[in-house]
Simulated scan of single mutants.
Amino acid sequence: MSKEIAILGVGMHPWGKWGRNFVEYGVKAARDALADAGVTWREVQFVSGAATIRNGYPGQVAGATFAQALGWQGAEVNTSYAACASGAQALAAARAKILAGECELALVVGADTTPKGFLRPAPGERPDDPDWVRFRMGITNPTYFALYARRRMALYGDTLEDFARVKVKNAEHGAENPYARYRKRFTLSEVAASPMVADPLRLMDICATSDGGAAVVVSSLAYAKRIGKADAPRIRAISTVTPTFASALVEMPDIATDSAVAAPAQSFRAALPRKAYEEAGVDPKDVDVAEVYDLSTAMELDWIEDLQLCARGEAAALLRRGETALGGRIPVNPSGGLACFGEAVPAQALAQVCELAWQLRGQAGARQVENARVGITANQGLFGHGSSVIVVRP
């Protein structure tokens, strides 16, 4: 049985620091996705929301919140929480519903309003929460981004200039994206001159926190054909596997551990795309475009290797040759990535799928990857959550 579903429509609310209710962003994205799909809200049978824990009870029941805001019409609802992978988990729920034959048309929405500064756990003592524990130890997000970067420098000889090149590339891409928060191009010297946050990473190496929203309308292949959209991009695989060794349970599976170096296929980030490739029947060399989780510039290089787009330790060389830029062999983050968007946590995995849909439909404008047919996403959430989605053009 085919596990494919069709992407009929996608929509986004521009990322920024708007300071408004997250529902506004999600509703705007949802309405744009419905219009793009050419279907009405009343035809939707299942609404799958990505939760945001920062926005009170409405954020914790996001599926119902968006359904209410769009107007109660009897659709079933679901809410998924997986930190930064929440959008992909919500998408997986919709896919499962469609493949089970329990609905034909679903709407998936994620949106967030974030506080100023870096993300942090909610107040209170929670020794059973590994995210809270690492913050208590002093390992804030920028700190562990820096540890990943130091690991690359020690193992593979990556340099500060390599990390800066990632920012320069993504800023060049994001300057062409109307939904991106930051649309300014940077030079290597400007990145190097930005303030140090967590050695060796500077401010321009680390993504911001943002407000924003994204939505995807998906359907069965039969439904897509019935409404004249048999050529719509298709989701062929969604991987949400968990780590396979104990140290991963504290959210940092690859930090300077000999076991991770000796057996990278065991690591959390490597397992996600491997499962997606197996399910989709796609080889890494078939991938034309990738949207990856660049919380930091160095982390993008890790993901390129985890996606098997090059051998372990060779991502920086790939970058230096221009192969991950538009016009290169395998463009990475043509949207501009989190470097240009920032984190709107429940929306970002869906935003990646939106970008792949535009790319595979040939609608990405100045950031278009020529003749893109296969795209992959990669996303990492706390406490064993993560996702990889493969989208193909039929």
Rank of each mutant, 00 (worst) to 15 (best):
M1V: 09
I7W: 02
H13E: 03
K17I: 11
G19A: 10
R20E: 11
E24F: 10
K28T: 15
A29Q: 03
D36C: 13
G38P: 13
F46A: 06
G49T: 13
A50I: 11
T52V: 15
T52C: 15
G56P: 03
G59P: 08
T65D: 06
Q68K: 14
L70V: 06
L70A: 03
G74W: 03
G74R: 02
Q89R: 14
A90M: 12
A92N: 15
A92T: 09
A93C: 12
R95M: 12
K97L: 05
P123V: 07
D128F: 09
D129S: 12
V133M: 08
I139W: 09
I139T: 11
I139Y: 12
A146Y: 03
R150Y: 00
R151A: 08
L155N: 13
Y156M: 09
Y156Q: 06
G157K: 12
E161I: 02
R165E: 00
V166E: 01
G174N: 01
N177L: 01
P178V: 14
A180M: 07
R181K: 10
F186P: 00
P195N: 05
L201E: 05
L201F: 06
R202K: 08
S210F: 13
D211T: 07
A214F: 03
V216C: 06
V218S: 14
S219R: 12
S219G: 15
I227M: 13
I227G: 04
D231T: 08
D231S: 11
A232K: 02
R234K: 15
R234M: 13
S239F: 04
E251Y: 04
T257N: 02
D258Y: 11
P273V: 03
K275A: 15
E279L: 12
D286K: 05
V287A: 03
D288C: 07
V292Y: 01
D294C: 15
E300C: 08
D302W: 01
G313R: 01
E314T: 06
A316F: 04
A317E: 11
L319W: 00
I330A: 05
V332T: 00
G336K: 03
L338E: 00
C340T: 09
G342T: 02
V345S: 04
P346Y: 09
A347L: 05
C354H: 11
W358N: 08
Q359C: 08
L360Q: 06
A364F: 06
A364N: 08
G365A: 07
G365V: 06
A366E: 14
A372F: 06
G375N: 12
A378M: 13
A378F: 07
N379S: 13
N379P: 10
G381K: 14
F383N: 11
G384A: 08
H385P: 09
P394T: 11
